[in-house]
Design a protein around this nucleic acid. Sequence first.
DNA 1: GTAGGGTTAG
Length: 694
Amino acid sequence: MPCTLSVFPAITAIPQFPENPRALILERCKTTKDINQIHAHLLKTRLVLNPAVAENLLESTAILLPNTMDYALSIFGEMDEPDSSAYNIIIRGLTYKQSPHEAVLMFKKMLESSVEPNEFTFPSILKACSRLRALREGEQVHAHFVKCGFGSNGYVENTLIHMYANCGRVEVARRVFDGMLTRDVVAWNSMFAGYTKSECWGEVLKLFCRMRESGVCFDEVTMISVLTACGRLADLELGEWISEHIESNGLQKNLPLMTSLVDMYAKCGEVDTARRLFDQMGQRDVVAWSAMISGYSQANRCREALNLFHEMQQKANVEPNEVTMVSVLDACAVLGAFDTGKWAHSYIKKKKMKLTVNLGTALIDFYAKCGSVDSSIEVFTSMDTKNVYTWTALIQSLASNGQGKKALDFFYMMRGKNIEPNDVTFIAALAACSHAGLVDEGRSLFFSMTKDFGIEPRIEHYGCMVDILGRMGLIEEAYQFIKNMPIQPNAVVWRTLLASCRVHKNVKIGEESFRHIARLEPAHSGDYILLSNIYALIGRREDALRVRSQMRQQRIKKAPGCSLIEIDGVVHEFLSEDDGHLDFKEIYSTIEDMMKQIKSAGYEPNPADARLDAEEDYQEASVSHHSEKLAIAFGLIRTPPGTTIRISKNLRVCTDCHNATKIISRVYNREIIVRDRNRFHHFKEGSCSCNDYW
DNA sequence: GTAGGGTTAG
């Protein structure tokens, strides 16, 4: 019971109790204790029997004060015959505070008690249905209020739009919207919100044009929806137009509006403009910070994302939420910043943050991209709710880390749980087949994708098939497969074939693939090197050199190799032949020692992977100074013996580094995990998880 | 007394 008379002070504590206590109850009561006092007095004076007074108590406890919903329910329970106003207050309170589900039950009770719902009942109950995504109940309420004659009440219609859109029926919402006799700005905004919910960004912009023709003035809420859509569609022109509107109308104080403006600029690729605006904001909450951090993260400026995250906590003292952590983990995943990401994970646990589907999926992906499959599985297992994104992340994690068979086990497990795979899931599953060397399985998945799931293969799916076939040496079949593709093959597909031609020493199709690549786009240095390697492997040294000199003549620049290693939470970056690092002398002498050690263990330098501008005599020196070897050497001297070394690099691992790393892992007894631009290499005891195909 | 708003995952 919220109150018993005896424990509360006598009426004397409230001198001159007003005849009509409405203002006293609704405006002056700030705490449960205040309301207790008043309630005691009302009981004693029997004023509580006056329905209007009781409703003031209800409103205060159900809506105005925090954590007093149970109090409200007990007052409600004491009422002899609650009228529709009393029900309305309770339904509204339950919808917003405690539980929309209880609000629906209360609405049922209202009908059972033959209390007529009125125009104020329906917006609340529709909102409750909307929050529950209870479409059937929502439809019943819809039918009910049409029968009661509230079908063209603006408030009711606007909430109805919201309800249908939130339940995934944006087209029904639109029909309601189109059927309205008059549409105020809230009606338009409800429709914008509906399209936003369903990610129909184009519809938002189309509707915005119509709104402007209609003569209804848009407001700040409208601009938030439109800016969000501009960001997703990269419509900078409209975004800037709104930006000017905000400025000339002095609306910079609106925090949500400014946040969506920052978000729009970042998503349109104008990250620095976004940052300038962000810095100018007078007030910044966790959402604003998260928007800016994700802006950096999505623009691949991951170090800046992490720096800003630091600033948010250290200087601004703003606590991150689940959404912030998703972007932080994303940045860690891209950088391969294992320690920072692990710290983020323990922070999430320490703060008892909710492991939402997005956050869990981001964690799985983070561990996957750091080569820590077991942790991916652990997170996956600990999640309460998983969706197709979650499963896909795990399958992808296993596949890219060389556990193709296990990845497929999870794919079939997912099917067993009746979760519908989508196009990305199939990319992951096909990649798994490729890594596990399962040609027949790959073929049948590829066909089943269209036949059983109605998913049209995209260029990525074709690429996976070429990889599956090529890896197993079915070069001719892979070539025919490309020739018969119903869509135009791109350079990536041909490059996949070229890579398999090198492994299986197929000159003819290799040359053909190279021609196709060069026809489609300026060939990369890697393409020249692959072709040159094929010639070298079958002993056509002159052709090999010709291709290399051709590449030099075409002035094809090799993207500088870059490797990252994180030591004690700091990401160190190495370029090939790098002497920019503080400890470079120590690193170079370690390399010398390292090369000696592995040579005596059987390593032979492979000059075919030398830097192309290096002189013949210096080729060996050059290979030994590849960024990857610098990073490994640094890892050897900066981590305790036996620690796993994790490297991430921007290019594919070269043959020489691959050979060398295998031997380093044996000689130094270290597990070395290298993430290259395509896949993972887990080096251990002299061999690699990729089985020397990558 | 009622309605609409910003950041996130494969």
